[in-house]
Every structure is written in structure tokens, then in C-alpha cells.
Design a protein around this nucleic acid. Structure first.
Lengths: 98, 98
DNA sequence: TAAAAGCACTTTGTTTTTCAAAGTTAGTTA
DNA sequence: TAACTAACTTTGAAAAACAAAGTGCTTTTA
């Protein structure tokens, strides 16, 4: 048997980032405020986790205008999708003992 | 929709503790050394994660003798099994967006 | 039109967690 | 008896998480 945890992605150790990804993988685009309310986080905390995911290029930020009002939304990238799925696969394999 | 991450267990944020639990859930009893080799950890690091799991009463320690030699093995508790399964369920629900 | 409020952050600083390395105790093999 | 293994504990450093406060901009409200 080889090390079952090495295929797990360190970035997804955090349940907040796991939560963000699981929201973004089923929603095309989610705003900062929606995430904040869904996950019940402070601005700073959410912003820093989003930043970690953005640095990893797992999501991208889209700044748009709704009328004159700015609106920031977050979108998962292809790399984000792949990495998240790979992590879930690794988790499943580990649990099933494959 | 309610907060998808609140049902996740903080203790299982750590992939090391996740790894330990996934080993213990399929093996009746695993020794310190086996865990150390499987997970490729230093003694101190493994011991501290095992301690966290023991504090939570997710596993118990069994000190036995093999001949005159002591042998320490770790066994998952019923609470450990329940908590681990509950965490996996919560994860699954979160991912599936239930 | 001045004040209050919302958005999306950044900054600051504390607390918590993680981890490696070294030390410890006790038995074991060469 | 010296080196070795097992199973830790202790120490200390580094990283991560987090809340709170501050910022700049816009919009709504009194």
C-alpha cells in the first residue's frame, strides 16, 4: 500500500475553500456577497481564502457593472474543476482503501 | 440554502487525520509504526495527530505485549466511526449541493 | 447635500495549527 | 555495553486562520 494522503490537495484541507469550490462548481458565477452569506464568514476571512484559490488559479475574478454599481463575481477555472475533481477522487480512493 | 460547511467536522480538516481514520476504519488495529510508514510522517507529527484524535475519543490506544516487547496499536471507537461517516456524508451532500 | 450604508477588499495583529527536531524511557539485539 | 527500535514528549519555529478595523468608491436616505 502506498501513502494514501499524498494525492490529496493541500489547498483543499480547508473546509472554507472546499465550500467555495463546491459552490462554484455548480454555479456559473457567484458574487462575493453571496459567498459571504452562504458560508457565514467575515469579509477578511473570505477574501483571504478567495485569494488563495485565485493564486492557485482555481478561480478567477470578474468585475462587472450592474448599472453604475460594481459587482464582483467569482468563476471557477478549468484547472479549478480538474483539481477539485482530482481531490475528490483521491478522497474517495483513500476512503474505499483502493 | 443553508451553510454547506457547518456540518463538516473541524477535526477532519487535516488530511493526516483523515488518512489515519480511513486506515483505522478498515483495519481493526494498526500500530504506530505502520501508520508512520504508511503516512510517511515523523514520530512527533504522527503522535500529535493521534493525540488530537484520542482527545476527541475517535480512537483508543491499546498497549499490548508481543512476547516481552510492548506493542502499541490504535483502534477506532464507535464515536470515531460515527463522526467520520457523518463527516463524509456532509462532504458528499455539500459537493452534490443537497 | 450631508450622512449613513453597502461592496469588496487590504492591513494589522493575535491565536491556532502544523511540523520537524531533539530529547526521553524502556526494552532488544549484536 | 553500545547501538538500535518503539513510542512517545517537549520545544520552538513557521505557517495558516481569523476577527476587527481601515480604505475607497458608490449609492441610498434623511
Amino acid at each position: 500500500m502506498n501513502n494514501p494522503i499524498e494525492a490529496l490537495n493541500k489547498i483543499f484541507d480547508s473546509r472554507i475553500r472546499l465550500g467555495v469550490m463546491s459552490i462554484l462548481i455548480v454555479n456559473d458565477s457567484v458574487s462575493f456577497n453571496e459567498l459571504k452569506q452562504l458560508l457565514e464568514l467575515t469579509d477578511g476571512n473570505l477574501a483571504s481564502h478567495l485569494n488563495t484559490l485565485e493564486q492557485a488559479e482555481y478561480l478567477k475574478v470578474q468585475k462587472a457593472f450592474i448599472g453604475k454599481k460594481t459587482n464582483t463575481t467569482y468563476i471557477i477555472t478549468d484547472l479549478g474543476k480538474l483539481s477539485f475533481k482530482a481531490h475528490l477522487d483521491a478522497l474517495e480512493k483513500m476512503i474505499k482503501g483502493i
